[in-house]
């Protein structure tokens, strides 16, 4: 079944406007809307897209919308889908930003954000811990500590650290794979 461009735009607009918590929170909503409700994609196709989205850099929600838009309605579909999912954030943040910078020095705002900042530390810590729990082995711990040291202590630009660790990890994983095949 093929949705109209307008319908595609509106579906993504709705998801962009009402899903809090970033890209990962959007994945189940995408599935509910596009697989179960409108049946544009089969369950299996959806999971293929999910694997590919997670293998590419970028904003998860945008990558997802472009994949689905492309598949359903080609380039135009990709464009309206990405526009739909990004537009609400863009408008909301722009509105907040214009007000925020006017009040940022107000004592009440300052006091509130002194508290809020601590919650940000707690949220990032929690995200890091959850991710760590999924790879709780010695090699993972070593690579995580090594990366931390590079960014924080050695003060190497994070851009290069990411590229380097990708390459480094690739070498470790790929040689393991090759050895594994030799044995079996």
């Amino acid at each position: 079944m093929q949705p109209s461009l307008w319908h595609l735009f509106l579906s993504f607009l709705k998801i962009g406007a009402f899903t809090f918590g970033g890209g990962y929170a959007m994945i189940p909503v995408f599935e509910r809307e596009f697989v179960h409700r409108y049946k544009y994609l089969k369950e299996e196709e959806f999971h293929d897209v999910l694997v590919m989205v997670q293998s590419l850099p970028g904003v998860i929600a945008i990558n997802f919308s472009v994949f689905i838009g492309l598949r359903l309605r080609g380039k135009k579909g990709a464009f309206v889908s990405a526009l739909g999912v990004a537009l609400p954030s863009f408008v909301i943040i722009l509105t907040i930003a214009t007000f925020f910078f006017r009040f940022v020095d107000h004592p009440i705002v300052e006091a509130v954000f002194k508290g809020v900042r601590i919650s940000v530390v707690a949220l990032i810590f929690t995200a890091g811990y959850k991710m760590f729990k999924a790879h709780r082995h010695l090699k993972g711990l070593f690579l995580a500590t090594f990366t931390f040291a590079l960014v924080y202590t050695a003060d190497i630009h994070p851009f290069f650290v990411i590229l380097m660790m990708g390459l480094f990890g690739y070498m470790i994983e790929y040689t393991k794979e090759v050895n594994h095949h030799d044995v079996s």
Partner: peptide
């Protein structure tokens, strides 16, 4: 392979 290797590094970046 590259992604599997990168994942622990992301933990380091977050911390």
């Amino acid at each position: 392979a590259a992604l599997t290797g990168l994942r622990p590094a992301l933990v380091g970046l977050i911390f």
